[in-house]
Amino acid sequence: MNELAQQIVSGLATGSIYASMALALVLIYRSMGVINFAQGEMAMFSTYLAWQFAQQGMPLWIAFPLTIAIAFAGAVALERVVVRPVERAAPLTVVILCLGLLITFNGLAGWIWGYTVRTFPSPFPTTPLHIGSAAFSSQDLGIIAVSLLSLGAISLFFGKTKLGLAMRAAALYPESSRVLGVRVGWMLALGWGMAAAVGALSGLMVAPVVLLEPNMMQGILVYAFAAAVLGGIDSPVGAVVGGLALGVGLNLIGAYVPVIGTDLQLTTAFGIIIVILLFRPAGLFGRRTMRRV
C-alpha cells in the first residue's frame, strides 16, 4: 500500500512536469494550430538563466521568479518580432520557424554555457516527508504542489478574468474577436509569454532531477507532446490530466510490470496512448465541434 502510494506520488511529480510542458504546448497550439517544438529549449534556456543568477549569488527565491518573468517577457518579444511575420503563413512554415528556434536556443545555450552536465540547486528540502509509515520525497511533493498551484492559477486566469476570456476568444474565434476590439496579435504574444513562463517553471522544477545541460528538455518535450495529444491537443485540462496520467502510468508500469523493464517502458506507454487515440481521436478532453442537433 505504502509502496503504491509512493510510486503514485513520484509518478505525479514527473507527471506534473509533463503536464506543465503539455499545457505550454496547448496554449500555443490553440492559437496558432502548431506545436512549438522550441518550447523545451526555451525552458532549458530559462533554466540556465536561473543557474547563472544563482552562480552570481542571487538567492533562489529571487532568481526563480526573475527567471520566469524574463521567460515571459522574452517570449512576448520573440512572438512580436520573430513569429509575427509568419503568423498568417501556412502551418508548416511556422513549424519550420519553431524548429529553427529549437536549434538556435540549443546552440546558444551550448555556446554560452558549454555542454558540461551541471547540478542545479533544488528549492525544496532534501529530507523525506513521512506520512504514516510511508516516506515521500519532499522534492516530489514540492514539484507537485508548485505545478498544481500554477496550473490552478492559470485555469482561474482563463476562466475568471476578462483578459483570460479574451485570450481564449482570440485563439478560437480570431475574426469575431477582432470586431469586439480584441487585439488578437497581442493575445497571441501573451500566449507565448504564458507558455514560456509555464515552461520555465517546469525547467526549474526538473533541472535538479535530470541535471542541467542543453539537451535536458528534449525527452520531456516528447512526453509532454504525447500527454497533450492524449488529453486532447486543444484542451488545457486535457494537457494536465494527460501529463499526470502519463507520469503515473509510466511509473507504475516500471514498478509493477518488471517484464517490460525500463527500456520498453516508454514504448508501452506510447502503445497505450495510440490505442486510446484510436477510440478517441480527439483525445480524452479534445474539443468535439459543437453542433446543434
Binding site: A166, A169, Y173, E175, S176, L180, R287, M290
Partner: peptide, 14 residues
C-alpha cells in the same frame, strides 16, 4: 460572430 463554445454570459462579457 457567435463565440459558440462560450456561454451566453461570456459572449456578453466579451
Amino acid at each position: 460572430g457567435t463565440l459558440g463554445s462560450f456561454t451566453v454570459r461570456e459572449n456578453l462579457s466579451m
